[in-house]
Design a protein around this nucleic acid. Structure first.
Lengths: 231, 231
DNA sequence: AATATAGTGTGTAAAAATTACACCATTAAA
DNA sequence: TTTAATGGTGTAATTTTTACACACTATATT
């Protein structure tokens, strides 16, 4: 059976690639679509930008509506503008990424009917995604892989308090290679923006590790004196 | 006298920040607008994307129409989507940059009536530009400053054959600081992608410097074996 | 012909950053 | 008490980065 779809002239949309880190694995947030086109497919959370909202605002709203997540720091990273990327008409999409702590408590619950559900999926072995979302994901992944080494994005993926081993395994997951434990620690600590806490890991059946926390103030001081702001 | 302008719903545009290097100075390409809004203002070359062209294609076409320049390698770098950035309606603009050799011979000549003229202007002491173009330029400048150190963009700004001093003064202009001559040369040559020519600079009233040329093949070999492609 | 001018081209030592590498310590569970 | 699992630590070798000064060459000027 063939479904007749409406067409439209030209619209903007945003798509969000939200990275999380859990159980030593890097994951992204996907939705199951509940609307044509690509009904029942998996896709990145994304939707149409309203007439009277900036694209940055749209990104926040749309992510919230599709997943229930709010107040992330999303960063635009690329705009996809091929003529035929959307089957119903001309849609140029601005893609955003964000990195967040996956938090068992925080429920993922679509607010609109447009998504049937939202869930985390490991970045390895991603299934086929709707539209050009696989390419969008790839571009995002390349970007954050780069940025990991000159921006403090790792800390957004970890819990507030984390161990150095957790930090290292995040780097290993993103860079997809093993790192030397001693050298990694030496380097991280040498930056001076990690604060050692008087607290230890709990609930592990082996020697508990010290917890650390990322000190934003110190980071800003160190970084901004070295070079002008970034964007 | 107040001018009544038409309004429109939503359109995409592209804006181009084209960098060139001349007389030891970094410059960008500006146009003088010949249409409302911002008639007579200076602006970045930019215009509306057609219904049936990709944004990448649009960027090439528009740059050509406004300046007569063709076949640059433009790279998208950011999309500007504030609601009120354009006085006549909702315009989201995708911004591109490119780096090219300024070539006295190549005439800058707008093809459409939309621009009165196109010309190079030093990036220092830029005048006020139309729309949010000053912010767009700033973002572009920050990007290329960053990229200079991990992508071979410098060579696009220089003539095919260049001296090491020219190369150095380009780096100095972009990074806005003095570099040490010996260290700079040592480092550049150590990369192995500069080809020393059997030729010397001509027409200078002092000892002529050796000419070099950027060897794309070698660069690709070195770079691609070190890490996956970029984007 | 001599000299002034302007930029070319080169090496080395010190300091800093990166890499490679192995074993004892601690905790909880068996 | 033993085992399993991970935490935590230092040093030497190598590589990379930095700081630094002077003789050479080509032309223009007198």
């Amino acid at each position: 059976m063939e479904v007749k779809l409406p067409t439209f002239d030209s619209v903007f949309s945003v798509d969000c690639v939200i990275f999380g880190f859990e159980a030593g694995e890097l994951k992204i947030l996907l939705i199951e679509r509940n609307e044509e086109p690509y009904k029942d497919w998996l896709a990145l959370p994304g939707y149409i930008v309203e007439q009277d909202e900036s694209i940055d605002d749209a990104a926040e709203r749309i992510l919230y509506e599709l997943t229930g997540l709010r107040d992330l720091h999303m960063q635009q990273f690329h705009t996809f503008g091929e003529v035929n990327r959307h089957p119903q008409g001309r849609v140029i999409t601005v893609a955003y990424y964000a990195l967040i702590r996956i938090n068992g408590q925080k429920e993922l619950r679509p607010i609109t009917q447009y998504a049937r559900k939202a869930f985390w999926h490991p970045v390895n072995e991603l299934p086929k995604l709707a539209f050009d979302h696989t390419a969008i994901f790839q571009t995002a992944f390349n970007k954050i892989r780069r940025r990991l080494n000159y921006q403090p994005i790792a800390f957004e993926l970890l819990p507030e308090k984390f161990t150095l081993t957790q930090l290292q395994s995040l780097y290993e997951a993103v860079e997809n290679r093993k790192l030397d434990k001693r050298n990694f620690r030496k380097k991280m600590l040498s930056y001076g923006f990690l604060k050692e806490l008087d607290e230890k890991q709990k609930g592990v059946s082996y020697r508990a590790a010290k917890l650390y926390k990322f000190d934003r103030r110190k980071y800003a001081k160190i970084f901004h004196s070295e070079m002008g702001g970034e964007k």
